[in-house]
C-alpha cells in the first residue's frame, strides 16, 4: 500500500524536532527507525500530517558511560544495542533481548527509543528497560525531564511522552554480579513474543538474593512480576524451588485473547517460561 500524503521534516537537532512537534500538535508523528510506523502508514491505519525524522540528529545515537550509568541514545539501533561492548558488560540483558527482535534488517533499522516510545506490549525492549530499571530522558519545549521506567509506559501504545516531547536517551544503571536471561516464546522466529519473560538474578551462594522479572505481552504494557520477585527473594537456587515460586508468575497480569493465543494459555505459559528464565539467570 501507499500511505496518505504527509509532510516530512528531517530534523538536525532535538530542539528543531521539538519545535516542529509543538507547531504541528497531535497530527505529527516522530519517525525513528520506522519499523512499526511505516507498516501502519502503508496500511493507512494512521495518517499523520507531518513526520519528523530523527535520523539526522547525531546526538541521539550511541552508547556512552556517565558515572554509574550507561546512556543509550534513543536512535541507537537494536543491532548497535545488541553488539555494544558497554551494553554487554553493564546491561547484558538489553543486548540479549535486542538480539531477539525481528530479523537482521529490522534490527539494523529499528531503534531502542522507537520501540520504547511505540509501547507495543508485544515488543521486547519495554520489558528489557523495565528489568534494568532504566530512566527515560524526555525533551520538550520547557526543557528536559527524567521519567523512571515504571512511569513511562502508561497503557497500550501510550506513554508519558507529550505530543511535543521527544525521547532523547535512556539512562541504565550499571549492574554487575547479576545473571540474566530472556525466554521469548513465539510461533515464528521473526514474530513478536506470544509471551516473554526477562529475568535478572543476583545470587548469594545457594540462594537467590534478589530477582527482577519483567513480562512481555502479559498486559497493556510491559509488566514487572512483583509477586514473583518477592517469592524468589531468598528462594533456593534450584530448579524445583524456582518452579514452585513461579506459580505466582501470572499474578497481577491481564493478558489478552488474540489470534495467536488465549489469555488462559498465556497465563499458563508465563509460569513455565518464568521458571526457565529464572533458572537460566540463576545459572541452574
Amino acid at each position: 500500500m501507499i500511505p496518505v500524503a504527509f509532510d516530512y521534516l528531517r530534523a538536525s537537532s532535538v530542539d528543531e524536532a521539538v519545535a516542529a512537534l509543538a507547531g504541528a500538535g497531535e497530527d505529527a508523528k516522530i519517525l525513528a527507525g520506522g519499523q512499526s510506523l511505516l507498516p501502519v502508514l502503508r496500511l493507512r491505519l494512521s495518517a499523520p500530517s507531518l513526520l519528523v525524522d530523527l535520523g539526522g540528529v547525531p546526538e541521539l545515537r550511541g552508547v556512552r558511560e556517565e558515572g554509574d550509568s550507561l546512556v543509550i541514545g534513543a536512535m541507537t539501533t537494536h543491532d548497535e544495542v545488541s553488539t555494544s561492548p558497554l551494553v554487554r558488560q553493564f546491561a547484558p540483558l538489553l543486548a540479549t533481548m535486542a538480539a531477539t527482535i525481528g530479523d537482521r534488517q529490522v534490527r539494523h533499522r529499528g531503534t531502542l527509543g522507537g520501540s520504547l516510545s511505540h509501547a507495543d506490549p508485544a515488543a521486547d525492549m519495554p520489558a528489557a528497560a523495565a528489568a534494568v530499571e532504566a530512566r527515560y530522558v524526555l525533551a520538550g519545549p520547557n526543557g528536559r525531564r527524567v521519567v523512571p521506567a515504571s512511569d513511562f509506559a502508561v497503557d497500550l501504545f501510550t506513554t508519558a511522552l507529550g505530543d511535543d516531547e521527544v525521547l532523547v536517551e535512556v539512562q541504565v544503571p550499571k549492574l554487575e554480579g547479576w545473571g540474566s536471561h530472556y525466554e521469548k516464546f513465539h510461533r515464528m522466529v521473526q514474530a513478536w513474543a506470544i509471551v516473554g519473560v526477562a529475568a535478572m538474578v543476583r545470587r548469594d551462594d545457594g540462594a537467590i538474593a534478589s530477582a527482577r522479572v519483567t513480562l512481555t505481552n502479559m498486559g497493556p504494557t510491559a509488566l514487572r512480576a512483583t509477586a514473583l520477585e518477592q517469592a524468589l527473594a531468598g528462594c533456593a537456587a534450584d530448579r524445583a524451588a524456582i518452579e514452585q515460586a513461579c506459580a505466582v508468575a501470572a499474578e497481577g497480569t491481564s493478558p489478552r485473547d488474540d489470534l495467536t493465543a488465549s489469555a488462559e494459555y498465556r497465563r499458563h505459559l508465563v509460569q513455565v517460561l518464568a521458571g526457565r528464565a529464572v533458572a537460566a539467570a540463576a545459572g541452574v
Binding site: 496500511l43 510461533r187 515464528m188 514474530a191
Partner: peptide, 15 residues
Amino acid sequence: VTGSFVDYTPPTAAD
C-alpha cells in the same frame, strides 16, 4: 482477520 503476514504466518527459512 488474517489479512497480512503478521497474522497469516508462512514460515521463513528460519522456521
